[in-house]
């Protein structure tokens, strides 16, 4: 069975970077969102297994999405992929239930090992 994946980032380039970094053998059905509001709508209306989430976005940002997920009580696994890598921000998103914090630009090996670690591949 393939996993349902959502990539949320306001940058087209960043979405492509994530897409290209996903392990080849991973059977996935991929959706994308370019801001937090779009992502929350997709999350609410679909069952999403894994969310790759940027933090700095217009409208609703990554932190807002994490809060929304908690409010909607979804069991989506969130991997934050962010340019803002200061420890304060990492702590904040981990407390909001993110599975892992990956720094941008995302690296395929790091992404794969994180997915393995959490049992998604």
């Amino acid at each position: 069975m393939s996993s349902s994946v959502l990539i949320c980032d306001d940058s087209n380039l960043a979405r492509k970077q994530v897409l290209r970094s996903l392990p080849e053998q991973w059977q996935v059905d991929i959706k994308t969102a370019s801001n937090g509001r779009e992502a929350l709508t997709l999350l609410r209306d679909n069952s999403v297994d894994v969310l790759f989430l940027d933090l700095t976005m217009p409208d609703i940002d990554g932190v807002g999405v994490l809060q929304g997920i908690q409010k909607l009580n979804l069991d989506t696994a969130v991997f934050v992929i962010s340019a803002d890598i200061q420890p304060e921000m990492q702590n904040k998103v981990m407390l909001l239930g993110a599975k892992a914090f990956l720094r941008k630009p995302v690296n395929a090996e790091v992404l794969t090992s994180n997915l393995q670690q959490h049992g998604y591949i």
Partner: peptide, 12 residues
Amino acid sequence: ELINVAMGQASD
């Protein structure tokens, strides 16, 4: 995006 990433690392 390049600038955002640079900003993040620079602020760190």
